[in-house]
C-alpha cells in the first residue's frame, strides 16, 4: 500500500514537470520488467532492448497515467505489449533469414544438485512454453512465474476472470500434451 501511495506521488510529481523522479521509477521496477520480459520472450530474451522500449513508452505516457491500476500493473501491460511486438518482429526476421537463428540457447551450466531439471528437460519446457500462443503464454507467465493474483492479471491483460481461467486451463492442456513425460515423472 505504501508503495502504491509512493507511486502515486512519483506520478504526480512527474506530471508537474519534475522528470527526475522517473529515475526512481526505473530503479524500482526495472528488475521486475526485465524478469517478465525474459520469461515472456522465452529464457533468455532480448531483455535490454525490450526494457528500454518499455521505459521509453512509460516516459512518454506517464503524464496520461490515471492511477486506475498500480504503476507496476501498468508497466507490466506495456511490457506485454512490447514483448508481443518484439516477437512479431523476431518472427518476421526469422522468416526472412531462414531458421538458422532459431537455435535454442543453452542454459547456464549448473550442477545437478543446484537444479533438479536437466538441460534436455529445460529445452523441452522452453519449447513447450514458446509453442504456446501469446494469449495462453502470457497468463501462464503472469500466474505461475510472476505469481500475480488473478484479478491483477485480468487487469493487466484486459480480460475477465472467467476468460483468464479458461485461458489458463487451455494453456495447461497444451503444456500437459507437450510435457507429458516430465509431468508423469
Amino acid at each position: 500500500m505504501a508503495e502504491m501511495i509512493d507511486d502515486e506521488l512519483l506520478v504526480e510529481q512527474f506530471s508537474r514537470g519534475d522528470e527526475s523522479v522517473f529515475d526512481r521509477i526505473v530503479e524500482r521496477y526495472s528488475a521486475d520488467v526485465g524478469a517478465l520480459a525474459n520469461r515472456l520472450l522465452g529464457w533468455p530474451g532480448e531483455v535490454e532492448d525490450v526494457s528500454q522500449e518499455v521505459f521509453l513508452a512509460a516516459y512518454l505516457g506517464l503524464k496520461r497515467f490515471r492511477c486506475k491500476c498500480s504503476l507496476k500493473s501498468w508497466l507490466f501491460t506495456i511490457t506485454i505489449n512490447k514483448c508481443r511486438s518484439h516477437r512479431r518482429k523476431q518472427l518476421l526476421r526469422l522468416r526472412t533469414f531462414s531458421r538458422a537463428a532459431d537455435k535454442a540457447p543453452s542454459p547456464p551450466a549448473q550442477t545437478a544438485h543446484e537444479n533438479p531439471v536437466d538441460v534436455e528437460t529445460f529445452n523441452r519446457i522452453r519449447s513447450a512454453v514458446a509453442a504456446l500462443p501469446a494469449k495462453y503464454r502470457e497468463p501462464v507467465v503472469l500466474r505461475y512465474l510472476q505469481e500475480l493474483p488473478t484479478d491483477e492479471i485480468g487487469q493487466i491483460l484486459g480480460i475477465s476472470q472467467n476468460a483468464l481461467h479458461v485461458r489458463l486451463s487451455r494453456a495447461r492442456k497444451h503444456l500437459k500434451g507437450n510435457l507429458n513425460q516430465q509431468i508423469e515423472r
Binding site: A31, A37, V47, E48, P108, V117, I125, Y144
Partner: peptide, 17 residues
C-alpha cells in the same frame, strides 16, 4: 516444472536502462 525451468534459466542479465 515452469518454476524449476525459470530458476535454471536464472535471472536476466541486469537490464541496464
Amino acid at each position: 516444472l515452469l518454476q524449476e525451468a525459470d530458476r535454471m534459466a536464472g535471472p536476466p542479465a541486469q537490464a541496464r536502462v
